[in-house]
Amino acid sequence: MTEKYEYVPHRLLHRKVRDAASGAEGVLMAVINENVSNTVDEQWMELAYIRGASGREFTTAASNVEPAPDQPQTAAGRRHSRSA
């Protein structure tokens, strides 16, 4: 088994996010491509590390990460809401 991990860039890094699978919220600390298999056959997955309000980190699939609902809109989002 190869023990090579790789940090993956993510647009929500260091922002408040929500795990769509559990509903838990926290700050996205890192996304890492990890071998999640405990057998000879490797299975790689992008895992998101989220630090919750308690200070403890939990993981979820990177595809489950979405902006937290109470996040301020980006400048582009505000621009679109004014036009109408």
Rank of each mutant, 00 (worst) to 15 (best):
T74S: 02
V31S: 05
A21L: 02
E66K: 06
D70F: 06
A53R: 10
R82P: 00
F58W: 08
R78M: 12
H14M: 11
H14A: 00
A53E: 06
Q71G: 06
E25W: 10
A84N: 15
P72Q: 05
Q71F: 08
M45N: 07
H80G: 00
E57S: 14
V65L: 08
G77P: 05
G77R: 06
R82K: 00
H10R: 02
L47G: 02
V65Q: 03
H10K: 08
Y7A: 06
A68D: 06
I50L: 07
E34I: 10
S81C: 07
A20E: 00
P67K: 10
L13A: 07
A48K: 12
A20Y: 09
R51D: 13
E66P: 04
P9W: 13
D19T: 06
Y5I: 15
Q71D: 12
Y7D: 04
R79C: 02
S37V: 11
E66W: 01
V8A: 02
L47F: 12
I50S: 00
A84D: 12
V40W: 15
Y49F: 13
A76P: 08
H80C: 06
A24S: 12
G23H: 07
D19N: 09
A61S: 07
T74F: 09
T74N: 01
N35R: 09
G26K: 05
E42S: 02
S81I: 10
A53S: 05
E46L: 03
G26N: 11
N64Y: 01
A53I: 13
A21V: 00
Y49L: 15
V40F: 13
P72W: 11
V27D: 03
G26M: 05
L13P: 04
P72V: 11
L13I: 03
M1H: 11
L28W: 10
S22W: 14
V17Q: 08
N38M: 01
V8M: 10
I50G: 10
T39A: 05
R15D: 15
T60Q: 00
L13M: 14
P72H: 05
E3V: 07
G77I: 05
S81R: 15
E66N: 14
D19H: 00
A53T: 02
D41P: 11
V27A: 12
H80A: 13
R82G: 15
Y7N: 01
T59A: 07
A62K: 11
D70W: 01
L13F: 06
A62C: 07
T60F: 09
G55W: 14
E46C: 03
G55N: 02
I32D: 00
A30P: 14
E3D: 09
N33Q: 08
R15S: 10
I50A: 01
V31P: 13
P67L: 13
G55Y: 07
G23N: 09
D41K: 11
L28V: 11
V65Y: 08
A84H: 15
D41S: 09
S22Y: 14
V36K: 01
H10G: 10
S54F: 13
F58N: 04
A68C: 00
Y7E: 10
S22P: 02
S81D: 15
A76C: 00
V36H: 08
A48I: 14
M45T: 14
